[in-house]
Each structure stands twice: as C-alpha cells, then as structure tokens.
Simulated assay, not measured.
Amino acid sequence: MPTFSAQVGTLLELYKIPQLHPFLRKSQLINNIVYNKPRDEKRKMIQYDIYNLVRFPNRSWLFVKVGDFFYSSTYDQDSKQCVQCPAQEYPNSERTHCLPKTVTFLAFEDTLGTAIACIALCLFVLTAVILGIFVKHRDTPIVKANNQALSFILLISLLPCFLCSLLFIGHPNTATCVLQQVTFGLVFTVAVSTVLAKTITVILAFSAVKPRRTMRCLLLSGASNSVIPICSLIQMIICGIWLGTSPPFIDIDSHSEPRNLIIMCNKGSVTAFYSVLGYLGFLALGSFTVAFLARNLPDTFNEAKFLTFSMLVFCSVWVTFVPVYHSTKGKFMVAVEVFSILASSAGLLGCIFVPKCYIILLRPDKNSWKALKNRRGYK
C-alpha cells in the first residue's frame, strides 16, 4: 500500500476528487510500484493508488480507495537543466527542441509587396503621362500660369519620389539601405521646396500688380526659383553628416516576431533620420502656412488653393506616420513608411496637377488666351 508524506489528518478532508488536485501538486507521493510500458523505452508511466481514511459510526477506521493517479511523460521533457534557444531559433510547442526561425522581409513576392510595387509603378506612369500632357500644351495659359518651369521641376521630382519606394521592397543590402533614406530625403526636399517656390511666385505675382518696383523685380528675376537649391543644399548637408557619422546598415531583428528573423535596414543614427524628417516637416509646414495665407489672392486658376490642399494632405500623412510607424514591427513598419511616401506624393500630384489636366483635356474652352482676357479684370 502506498504512503503519503502528508499527515493522516489531512486525508480526512479529501472527500471529493476535485479537491485532490491542489493536494497532489503540493505533496510528495511515494510509491514502490512503477509500471514501464514494454517496447517503449522513451516513455514511462507511474501509477498511484489514492486512499481516504474513513471513520465509521462504531469509531472504527478504514482506508478506502477513492481513485488512481496516472502520470506518463517522455524523458526528453524531464530535463534537469533548461537551455535557452539561440537568437536564430525558437522552441517547439513541447519545448523539447529548437527550430530554425524563418527569414522574412518585405519581398516583391508577398501580397503586400506586390500591391505596393504595383501602386508605385501606376503612380509613376500617371505622373509621366501628366508630364507629357503639360509638355504638349506648354503654350497654353494654364501651363504657363504660376511659373511653368516650376511645374516641370515638380513633376520631374515626383517621378523618383514614386520610384524610391521600390528601394524599400526586396532583400535589403548595404546599397539599398543607404539609397532608400538618402534618395527619399533629397527628392522630397526638392518637391516640397518647389511647392514653396510656387507659393512665393503667387504672392509675388499679386504684389507685382501693385506699383511696387521691388516686387516686380523679384518676380522677373526668378528669385523664387532660388528656394529650391538653397533648401536642397541644407538637406544634402544633413544627409552627408548622417552618412559620415552613422549610416544605415543591414540588421536582423530576432525579437519582434518569435518565429521569424526579420532582415531590415537599421537607420543608423536615429537622430539623423528624424532630422531629415524634421527638416521636411519644417518645409512642408512653411509651404502650407504661406499657401494658406495666399489662398484668397485673385489667382487665375486657383493655384494657391490647390497648393494649400496639397500641403494639407502632405502634412497630414507625415503627422500620422510617426505614431503608426512606432506601433508596428517587422516588414509592416517598412510598409507604413512606403505607404506614407506614396500617399504624400500622390497628394501633391492629385491636388496640384489633376485639376489642371481636367481643364486641359475636358474644358479646353477655359484654357485659351481669349477666355483668359474675357475674365473679370482682363477686359
């Protein structure tokens, strides 16, 4: 008969089977009967007979069997010392072996990667088509309005804005890790500074109508065009410091997803990365402020209002980007950055150029010098 290490008085309380579970977990059971299954050396089964001490009305005592306790396990589960799996591996569900983690990244073959790549290419083609329309109708009033050269610069800068998102897809390497951040910072600086230059042009054009020789000279000299190289030079200096001190590099994230090894581009200097974003945000906020103040100026084709809407979309996308970027992990973090690039670029393209293409293609009667002279203020 098996014995228990607990006191006999404790057994008097064990009348119900569910009450045995906490008792068995805390007690040391001693049994001389051990059954080994034949033909299976890896498994062992132990059986305990559970008895209860019952008192009868005549004050006699008797041990009554109330149940059995069976325990079976494998030897490779009863390890004396646990060993943590390496960073490149994870434990199986039984925690008996370490399995290799799957290498993952935002690949072109993934559904998400394919969708992003298709969207980027479609927007690139659309931008190229709009650029071709503007080149074909370059002698019309709507294309010449508000500095024709700046419109071409903005359209050309939007082309690499859409293409640079492809650098974030595929297996990362040293070249793509460096190019994706530097290209993104520089081409977006050119695009946003061009919007700022176009907004300044609207203000100078309105001021030049008044008898102010200084404003007229600034407009004719193309002073607003100098905004682009100056702003771009500052961003180039920031990117140069970034690459010279702590450039981006390939990194492996083995902690975000328990069963995956995430191949990613480490930003290197986080301060430099947010300096690039902060500078872009400063330019975008400045462009939005200037465009908002100039939105009611009597512009011929509502250029100031279109610029205001475009910068509103741009700023909204990147303000939303920061919290969402920090709340995601792995390849979804990369997807959030790519989506922000595509959404902000599409905002500039759609708000500034789509209304003009509508007039060029569908309302050509409004895009003639005769119609322009017949408008109020030109009679």
Score class of each variant (00 low, 15 high):
residue 124 F to D: 00
residue 86 P to R: 07
residue 331 K to H: 11
residue 300 T to E: 12
residue 349 L to G: 01
residue 317 V to E: 09
residue 14 L to I: 06
residue 299 D to A: 13
residue 252 I to A: 07
residue 284 A to H: 06
residue 373 K to Y: 13
residue 296 N to F: 14
residue 134 F to A: 02
residue 265 C to S: 09
residue 106 L to T: 03
residue 203 I to T: 09
residue 181 Q to V: 02
residue 5 S to Y: 10
residue 67 G to S: 07
residue 238 I to M: 08
residue 141 P to N: 08
residue 128 A to D: 03
residue 138 R to P: 10
residue 100 P to G: 05
residue 300 T to N: 10
residue 33 I to H: 09
residue 288 F to A: 00
residue 62 L to W: 06
residue 306 F to Q: 04
residue 241 I to V: 15
residue 7 Q to M: 12
residue 368 S to R: 08
residue 268 G to D: 03
residue 188 F to S: 05
residue 315 C to R: 01
residue 179 L to E: 01
residue 278 G to P: 04
residue 166 L to P: 05
residue 369 W to Y: 11
residue 219 L to C: 07
residue 263 I to L: 12
residue 247 P to W: 01
residue 196 L to C: 07
residue 97 H to E: 14
residue 67 G to I: 13
residue 11 L to P: 06
residue 371 A to L: 02
residue 316 S to L: 14
residue 23 F to V: 13
residue 177 C to E: 04
residue 305 K to R: 14
residue 204 L to S: 00
residue 365 D to S: 14
residue 187 V to A: 03
residue 272 A to E: 03
residue 252 I to N: 08
residue 263 I to D: 06
residue 306 F to T: 00
residue 182 V to D: 00
residue 47 Q to K: 11
residue 210 K to G: 08
residue 174 T to R: 04
residue 180 Q to W: 01
residue 222 G to V: 07
residue 34 V to S: 08
residue 86 P to K: 06
residue 233 L to Y: 03
residue 129 V to I: 15
residue 296 N to G: 11
residue 249 F to Y: 13
residue 251 D to P: 02
residue 184 F to H: 01
residue 294 A to F: 10
residue 176 T to Y: 09
residue 16 K to D: 13
residue 283 L to N: 02
residue 180 Q to A: 02
residue 260 N to R: 12
residue 41 E to P: 05
residue 278 G to V: 11
residue 46 I to D: 01
residue 324 V to L: 14
residue 379 K to M: 08
residue 45 M to P: 02
residue 346 A to F: 12
